[in-house]
Design a protein around this nucleic acid. Structure first.
Length: 587
RNA sequence: GCGCCUGUAGCUCAACGGAUAGAGCAUCUGACUUCUAAUCAGACGGUUGAAGGUUCGAUUCCUUCCGGGCGCGCCA
């Protein structure tokens, strides 16, 4: 089905054609029909008359007037109006809204069209390092990455979420070297990530020990030993490999458990180690193509463009012959191209790695993969209360597992306090859904590019603009339906709604904007467009809930309001699902 | 030094180049014998860091300056 915006757009386009205005030299997004920011002007507006007037050497109001004469919106809108300097304001008719709402209700996709240009997209997330514990700093890649994957899938794209875990670099080398010295075998079985994280932190501290600004002799010695241990692993040394496998598998179990608790779904897990056999060939290939050069004993890929990378080459092989992150990333891209031939790869990674990805993407282009679109979807850093980034190695950042259990127990306690009729089982489920949902919402409702300071109260907010607020709106609908059911008032959904109150009209109009919000969010992966929309939707529903009795109203208004409730609930549930947030039936 | 990001209400944040810059929290006033008050109605709160520029129109784009964060060859 066509969205409201598309229908209006078609009418405007036809009018533009009929008037014969010169569209050249004006950016196409100027012709977009958009929702009015302020409802007092109308529901949608067309602002194109202003820029077009200039190109056509006329005045905007006159141009808007001639457009109006050719604009046929009968059946959709009331008579259009020209306002201000030349805005054309469109107000949808009640009849149109009544019939559109029923159509959307009958549509599995809630009125959201499938993309006209499906792509195959690899989404790279969360890609944690197996040697370090998961802490709150990891939630952004998990939540944002997962939401992007869900959003793309819903839009009709082929998505492969690929967890590129860090299991072959220096961090795991540190743990392998340190394990016989500081490792706790018993603890490994109980909490692998923490057991390994402890060793990692110890070794990291040892290799970083400084005196008067330079590394101590012991630190240098340890660093050399770690490098040798890592090199042994990469050479295929049996002992190192056996220990590596044991440690990696143990931490993978825990990583998987965390994903399961958080509802993070990855399609494939292909860590760095998966690519190690390719690395030598890649170096040879880069050399033979003249892309890689020797510099200070190491091998680099230099760049001519972009300009700021001119003095910033990408290092692909260390002077001791071992490989780096960048090398593995090249291999990963090669593998993905061979295996899935994607149109796009999306890396959901902290903004601090921007330079690395610029280098990588530039190198990949030189290397010959110039068709695939490579995107680094950056996000801001989560900072500690001191305003500095959380660091896993200092161990001072809250652990992800603590955050999850705190969220769930607070949500459970609140539910128990609010509703005495809930069973133990229900309380546990509500605690889980609301707790995890609140965490996700706190992160996803924020513009992804900005940093934020971690705060328990912010992450676990249960009032106002928060997941519980949205889920509560959903629960209220379910509650109405339970009541209606018990009173025998459930009938087939009406073919068209019967709208009279301002709150009803307002709600319907907003529901019909869902496709537009999905489109906005997909534009540059701005997930908070969805959360903002859902919050406003919940506010509008609550206003309706307060103003319009449902069960106690008379037919056909009752059926119409039930339909409107159902529609709201479905959009809410659907939108929350795109964010990876579940719903409950009662709370 | 170079590069990227950022500066909006007391706090945390929104705002495809569009009309009177919006929410939440906090503070204050009200609303539960009512389809669940994890709620609602209302009040208070702004020189969008500063100055220029482009535009019919700038929180949004450009320039400069000021403040904050991050990154910059053998880590990932």
């Amino acid at each position: 089905m066509q969205t409201v915006q598309q229908q209006l757009q078609d009418k405007i386009n036809a009018a533009l054609l009929a008037v014969g205005v010169d569209l050249s030299g004006v950016s196409p997004d100027v012709f977009q029909v958009v929702p009015c920011a302020n409802a007092q002007f109308g529901d949608y507006q067309f602002n194109g008359a202003l820029p077009l007037a200039k190109a056509n050497k006329t005045n905007p109001r006159a141009l808007a007037q001639s457009l109006l004469e050719k604009l046929d919106v009968a059946g959709l809108c009331e008579a259009p109006e020209i306002a201000g300097p030349g805005f054309i304001n469109l107000r949808l008719t009640r009849e149109f809204l009544e019939s559109m709402a029923a159509q959307v209700l009958g549509d599995e996709r809630l009125g959201v069209p499938l993309t006209a240009t499906p792509r195959t997209v690899v989404v790279d997330y969360p890609s944690p390092n197996v040697a370090k514990p998961l802490h709150v700093g990891h939630i952004r890649t998990m939540f944002i990455g997962d939401a992007i994957a869900r959003l793309l899938r819903f839009a009709g794209h082929q998505v492969i979420s690929d967890d590129h875990i860090g299991d072959w670099g220096t961090p795991i080398g540190m743990v392998i070297w340190g394990w016989p010295r500081f490792g706790d075998e018993n603890f490994l079985g109980q909490n692998a990530l923490e057991a390994m994280g402890n060793v990692y932190k110890t070794v990291k501290a040892m290799t970083g020990a400084k005196e008067g600004g330079t590394l101590t002799p012991q630190a240098k010695e340890t660093l050399a030993a770690v490098r040798e241990e890592t090199a042994k692993l990469h050479r295929g040394d049996e002992q190192a490999l056996a220990l590596w496998k044991k440690l990696r598998d143990a931490s993978q179990v825990e990583i998987n458990a965390a994903y399961a608790q958080l509802g993070i779904k990855v399609d494939v897990t292909l860590g760095e180690s998966f690519y190690h056999e390719r690395l030598g060939n890649i170096i040879e290939d880069l050399k033979s193509k003249g892309l890689a050069l020797e510099s200070e004993g190491a091998l680099i890929v230099p760049f001519e463009e972009p300009l700021h990378l001119r003095d910033k080459p990408m290092l692909v092989q260390k002077s001791d012959g071992s490989f780096l992150y960048a090398t593995t990333d090249l291999a990963t891209i090669q593998y993905r191209m061979e295996t899935w031939a994607p149109d796009e790869m999306v890396y959901v990674v902290d903004a601090r790695q921007s330079d690395h990805f610029r280098q990588l993407f530039a190198a990949v282009k030189l290397w010959g993969f110039d068709k695939v679109s490579l995107k680094h979807i950056t996000f801001g850093t989560i900072l500690g209360e001191d305003g500095l980034p959380l660091k896993s190695r200092t161990g001072e950042s809250p652990k992800l597992s603590d955050l999850m259990s705190e969220a769930q127990s607070r949500a459970r306690a609140t539910a128990q306090e609010k509703n005495a009729e809930l069973s133990e089982e229900q309380l546990n489920e509500i605690g889980r859904v609301i707790g995890i949902g609140a965490l996700k919402y706190a992160d996803l409702s924020q513009n992804r590019v900005s940093d934020y300071i971690f705060s328990w109260d912010k992450m676990l907010a249960f009032q106002g603009n928060s997941a519980p607020y949205l889920i509560y709106a959903y629960v209220r609908v379910r509650s109405i339906f339970r009541r209606a059911q018990s009173e025998g008032l459930i009938t087939d959904l009406p073919e068209k709604l019967t709208l009279s109150e301002a709150a009803e009209l307002d709600l319907v109009k907003f529901i019909l904007r869902y496709p537009l919000e999905i489109e906005t969010a997909l534009g540059d992966y701005r997930i908070n467009a969805i959360s903002d929309y859902l919050f406003s939707l919940s506010q509008k529903f609550t206003a309706f809930y307060d103003a319009c009795p449902v069960v106690k109203s008379e037919s056909p208004q009752r059926e119409s309001r039930l339909a409107l409730c159902e529609l709201t609930a479905r959009v809410l549930k659907h939108g929350l699902n795109l964010l990876g947030i579940e719903t409950v039936e009662q709370m």
